[in-house]
Write a protein that binds this DNA or RNA. Structure first.
Lengths: 155, 155
DNA sequence: ATCACTTGGTTAACATGTTAACGAATTTTG
DNA sequence: CAAAATTCGTTAACATGTTAACCAAGTGAT
């Protein structure tokens, strides 16, 4: 019999394993997985550069998480933050030459991870998987809204 | 087109939402989700009592995580740790009267979460989902083993 | 019996994420 | 235009998990 609780356990397992693998793979570059995730996104999605807020939205992690990862990346010389002249609130994030040098290595690490994940899984299965995952995640979003609503109603 | 990266994003989203919902639901009991997870396990799986090591295995979280959650639960009067007379290393974890009192409320919170998750998802779909999830997670376990092996080979 | 190994649990250090509160810059609105 | 609201980023506090190092108790082999 299936226990829904296994879904959580599996999700945890998967994320933990993936993080571990990426951390291991990026250790020679002195990069953590959190940093790697951001760099990868900049490599593959960023046309030129991105504001931090865009990273927050596109990677779906919180502002402080992005802020601190960028602190570290800047420290290590992988990115630059420069003020946007047209809106001085936004910090545009740009990859440095150094980052571009190691880019392929980072992409290779992630591609390796993705390939490992997909062993024995077809495109169709992945599609179905993501479909369900999405529905579940939407269910939660809805549940959370209702919860907030009830809180407000109770107040 | 599907991007494998979405799997991670969805998994993160799901775990985050679930944690948030449970935290909200258990706040009146002064319990966090980490604590609730353990209590739920004790309620539903524990015949009488469990050693901490068993919690570690069955919940698949690290020893320190269990240790600290139990510290807090003991502090709050929800569990007791007693030395096993037959093996004085083992701390047997037992629910207190107080825990049993709030048991139904905790189980209700989780059942509500599970019900919300399953909205519009059939048993068959869940089964397929878990099947794939399991395969993926096994893939990672294998990848990690290989990685460790390569490390050793390199040394 | 003793010495080496294993096992259960704790502590310390750190990784990674979150929310809340804030400051500065921009936008909206009356 | 000036006051109010919003937006972008940072900082502080904390939640939750991990690995590494350790102690104390059991186990086992010579």
């Amino acid at each position: 019999m299936y226990d829904i609780r296994d879904v959580w356990q599996r999700a945890h397992q998967m994320l933990r394993s993936a993080r571990k693998i990426i951390n291991e793979e990026l250790r020679p570059l002195n990069l953590s997985s959190a940093e790697g995730n951001i760099l990868l996104h900049l490599f593959t999605q960023g046309q030129g550069e991105l504001g931090q807020e865009q990273l927050v939205e596109q990677l779906d992690i919180s502002k402080p998480a992005v802020s601190r990862a960028l602190d570290s990346l800047e420290q290590k010389g992988y990115v630059l933050r420069q003020e946007d002249p047209s809106d001085r609130r936004v910090h545009r994030v740009r990859l440095t030459e150094r980052a571009r040098t190691v880019g392929p290595q980072i992409e290779r690490a992630y591609n390796q991870l993705y390939a490992a994940a997909m062993q024995g899984i077809s495109q169709e299965e992945l599609a179905a998987f993501l479909h369900l995952f999405t529905r579940m995640s939407e269910n939660f979003t809805r549940a959370q809204k209702n919860q907030n609503k009830e809180d407000r109603d109770a107040a």
